[in-house]
């Protein structure tokens, strides 16, 4: 087991006072708290920081930890000294609830697994606990929100013995129905599919946080979709019929003559479906006029002819304004 340097985790000196420790923790919490942070690895970093603070903020735990530090984190591997008996009472939440600290922490301070509720010579009945709710992100393709089909979702559940001690996680797979019209950021609740209860307590719930995977062709704007349609200059000028992809197959789209770059054409009802009876969103085709990369001699002649004959000044506005 790795010896955790809690002082380094908080970036404080080993002789730092309580106030300095608190300030350091606050600062790091603002930076890495998963609820407020977009830093990469915020969750893992915050876990280290809060574990360090959990120990260093309590004079009792800090004294125990300092003693172990003196005993010597010589190698990268750490074993608690033989006969090590933690003294302070573990007043944290029961395991599996909110906090999930490292094996190092568990070995030093977690020997009284289950906190005050059990494990002390078995004199008291171990108490029932509702299992932990589990939240996990599920990436979904846009196509998967159309049909209301089920898809298998795999996850691992923490597991504990009757004293609340950690066991290896259990892997589970469920077939989950994805409701039609599920949107980005929504959560699907699966009652009773979270961590099993402790001592016969009820199981927690499983929450699936939906993330829509960016699509190579369609951009999502609420319930509407946007597809960028490249057109040749003459298609924009003369009008054309072009094949445009939708989430449910290709359709023919009429482009009116004299269309502009950036013009939006609405294709009704071809956006993302809504929940219930509400109408589906629309698909917007946005025209992007694309020039050929090069022109052969004949084409060049035609452009020259056009330039000579067409009375068009795209910068006419500048004459008035600048």
């Amino acid at each position: 087991m790795e010896f955790k340097d809690y002082y380094a985790a908080l970036g404080v000196e080993p002789d730092a006072d309580e106030k300095a420790i608190k300030t350091a923790y606050r600062k790091l919490a603002r930076k890495y708290h998963p609820d407020v942070s977009k830093e990469p690895d915020a969750e893992a970093k915050f876990k280290d920081v809060s574990e360090a603070y959990e120990v260093l903020k309590s004079p009792e735990k800090r004294a125990e930890y300092d003693e172990l530090r003196r005993y010597g984190p010589q190698g990268p591997q750490f074993e608690a000294p033989p006969g090590w008996q933690p003294r302070g009472g573990f007043d944290g939440p029961p395991p599996g609830h909110e906090q999930d600290f490292s094996d190092f922490f568990e070995q030093i301070f977690g020997g009284r697994a289950g906190g005050a509720q059990g494990g002390f010579g078995g004199a008291r009945q171990p108490r029932q606990h509702r299992g932990q709710d589990i939240e996990m992100e599920v990436p979904l393709f846009l196509e998967e929100t159309l049909s209301g089909d089920s898809r298998p979702i795999s996850f691992s559940l923490p597991s504990y013995d009757e004293y609340g001690r950690k066991l290896p996680p259990q892997n589970k797979t469920l077939n989950v129905k994805i409701p039609v019209g599920t949107a980005d950021g929504e959560r699907i609740r699966l009652k009773g599919q979270g961590a099993p209860g402790i001592n016969g307590g009820p199981a927690g719930d499983l929450y699936l946080a939906i993330r829509l995977v960016p699509h190579p062709v369609f951009d999502v704007d609420g319930r509407d979709l946007v597809v960028t349609v490249p057109v040749a200059p003459w298609e924009a000028a003369l009008g054309a019929k072009v094949e445009v992809p939708t989430l449910s197959g290709r359709i023919n789209l009429g482009i009116p003559a004299n269309s502009q770059a950036g013009q939006r054409l609405r294709i009704k009802g071809k956006g993302l479906p809504n929940k219930g009876d509400a109408a589906a969103g629309d698909l917007y085709a946005v025209l992007k006029v694309v020039m050929p990369k090069s022109a052969d001699e004949a084409t060049r002649k035609l452009w020259e002819e056009l330039a000579a004959k067409a009375a068009f000044d795209p910068r006419a506005d500048w004459g008035k304004r600048a």
Binding site: R30, H33, D35, R189, A209
Partner: peptide, 18 residues
């Protein structure tokens, strides 16, 4: 709405941590 569970849980974490 069951989304409320996540919101409250987030609120509780913010209260405890900050």
């Amino acid at each position: 709405d069951y989304q409320a569970v996540s919101v409250v849980r987030r609120a509780v974490r913010l209260r405890r941590e900050f």
